[in-house]
């Protein structure tokens, strides 16, 4: 868990733009974090603020963190389901231990930036009804790199 301590230190001292973390909110064992992400400037989400929930397993960083948007404010985006689950390949298949909380936040920010049309994924209603609580249990199908 030394690595998580280092990440927390880096994230509080030198966060990526729009990302804030309050160490007071994070418990002592660092296995669950709440990170705030501001809607990127000159994007459809400008002015909004979202909260992300990170859960780290014992195997982190070899195992990817579980990342979901927290209610009540879940961005309306073609790759973000209304229960907060995110369809993002680096959170499962393309995870690498060289990635970090900061780089995940950056990816999500870029995903929001490049969105042209605020809408839910086409299968949102079905997915939210049938999915596992843990988004890592979903077999995601990554097919669209444009957003």
């Amino acid at each position: 868990m030394r690595r998580l301590q280092k990440e927390l230190l880096n994230l509080t001292t030198d966060p990526p733009p729009g990302v804030t973390v309050d160490p007071e909110e994070i418990g002592d064992n660092l296995s669950e974090w709440t990170v705030s992400v501001a809607g990127p400037a000159s994007s459809l989400y400008e002015g909004e603020t979202f909260r992300l929930n990170f859960r780290f397993s014992q195997k982190y960083p070899f195992d990817s963190p579980e990342v979901v948007f927290m209610r009540p404010n879940i961005p309306v985006h073609p790759h973000i389901y209304s229960n907060g689950h995110i369809c993002l390949s680096i959170l499962t298949d393309d995870w690498s231990p060289a990635l970090s909380v900061a780089s995940v936040c950056l990816s999500i920010t870029s995903m929001l930036s490049s969105c042209k049309d605020k809408k839910r994924p086409p299968d949102d209603a079905f997915y939210v009804k049938t999915c596992n609580k843990n988004p890592k249990k979903t077999r995601w199908w990554y097919h669209d790199d444009t957003v």
């Binding site: 030394r2 690595r3 280092k6 990440e7 960083p61 231990p97 060289a98």
Partner: peptide
């Protein structure tokens, strides 16, 4: 690049990491 500590028993990949 993984544990973010000073590399112990360091190895470098062909790509230089």
């Amino acid at each position: 690049n993984i544990c973010l500590d000073q590399a112990r028993d360091a190895v470098v990949s062909m790509c230089g990491h």
